[in-house]
Simulated assay, not measured.
Amino acid sequence: MKLRFNRWYFILTVLLFVTEVLIAAYLHDEFIRPYAGDFLVVILIYCFVRSFIQAPAVPVAVAVLLFSYLVEGLQYLDMVKHLGLEHSRITNIVLGNYFTWADILAYTLGTAFVILVEKLRTARKPEVIS
């Protein structure tokens, strides 16, 4: 693992962040906002990490997934309320306020998608013969 800025992942991070904000602000449906948003958030976090850290895809993706599980676990424990921050809109948006297994599934599928795309992307790179 080494620190190195990657413009491509940073551009993806910005695009995904804008997409997440638009979903949160304008979509109030029962599928895209709750499920696609959670699917995309792990991809967003992955791209953000890869914007600054050069490391193998799978360990970074798994770390992002574990972080997502941690946040969901904190929701299960009602941590926002225990911290006395239940009236903070920002805290409720960032940490969430209720646990669902569907979120766990969405995070897992988003991470699987990242790993699949990274495997396909690296498989398409031509080998350098020396």
Rank of each mutant, 00 (worst) to 15 (best):
Val60Ile: 14
Gln75Trp: 08
Ile53Thr: 04
Ala106Arg: 05
Ala25Ile: 03
Arg124Ile: 01
Leu22Glu: 11
Ile129Arg: 10
His87Phe: 06
Tyr107Pro: 05
Tyr9Gln: 03
Asp38Phe: 04
Val18Ser: 02
Val117Gln: 06
Tyr98His: 13
Tyr76Asn: 00
Leu120His: 07
Leu74Thr: 13
Val21Arg: 11
Asn92Phe: 11
Val49Pro: 00
Thr91Tyr: 10
Phe5Trp: 12
Phe17Asn: 04
Trp101Ile: 12
Leu77Met: 12
Ser51Gln: 03
Ala63Ile: 08
Ile53Leu: 15
Tyr46Ala: 03
Glu127Trp: 06
Arg50Thr: 01
Asn97Phe: 11
Tyr107Arg: 15
Trp8Val: 14
Ile32Gly: 15
Thr100Cys: 13
Phe52Met: 03
Leu22Lys: 04
Glu127Asn: 08
Thr100Tyr: 09
Leu3Arg: 06
Ala25Val: 03
Leu74Gly: 06
Val18Gly: 00
Arg89His: 10
Gln54Leu: 06
Phe48Ala: 06
Leu70Tyr: 10
Ser130Gln: 10
Ile45Pro: 04
Val64Ala: 04
Arg33Lys: 13
Glu86Leu: 02
Tyr46Lys: 01
Trp101Phe: 15
Tyr26Asp: 07
Lys81Leu: 11
Asp38Met: 03
Leu95Phe: 15
Ile53Phe: 15
Leu120Val: 13
Asp29Glu: 08
Tyr46Thr: 09
Phe5His: 06
Ala36Ser: 07
Leu65Gly: 03
Trp8Asp: 12
Val80Asn: 02
Tyr46Asn: 03
Gly73Ile: 09
Arg89Phe: 14
Val62Ile: 15
Leu70Cys: 13
Pro59Phe: 05
Ile45Leu: 13
Ile32Met: 11
Leu74Met: 15
Leu12Trp: 13
Val41Ala: 05
Leu27Lys: 00
Tyr9Lys: 01
Ala36Phe: 15
Val62Ser: 07
Leu120Trp: 12
Pro59Val: 09
Arg33Glu: 11
Leu65Ala: 08
Trp8Ser: 12
His82Ser: 08
Val128Arg: 10
Leu16Ile: 02
Leu40Val: 09
Ala57Ser: 15
Glu20Asp: 09
Leu83His: 06
Thr91Cys: 14
Pro56Met: 02
Ile45Thr: 07
Tyr76Phe: 15
Asp29Leu: 04
Leu116Lys: 05
Glu118His: 06
Leu27Ala: 01
Ala112Met: 10
Glu86Arg: 02
Val94Glu: 08
Ala57Thr: 01
Ala102Trp: 09
Ser88Trp: 00
Leu15Pro: 01
Ile129His: 10
Val114Asp: 06
Tyr107Val: 08
Ser51Asn: 02
Arg50Gly: 03
Phe5Cys: 08
Ser130Leu: 08
Thr19Cys: 15
Asn92Glu: 10
Leu109Asp: 01
Ile43Arg: 01
Ala63Thr: 10
Ile11Thr: 13
Asp78Cys: 04
Leu116Ala: 12
Ala57Lys: 02
Arg124Phe: 02
Tyr26Ala: 09
Asn6Gln: 12
Gln54Ala: 07
Leu66His: 05
Val80Cys: 00
Trp101Met: 12
Glu72Arg: 14
Leu70Phe: 14
Ile129Val: 11
Ala123Thr: 00
Leu3Glu: 00
Leu3His: 09
Thr91Lys: 02
Thr122Glu: 08
Ile93Asp: 00
Arg50Cys: 02
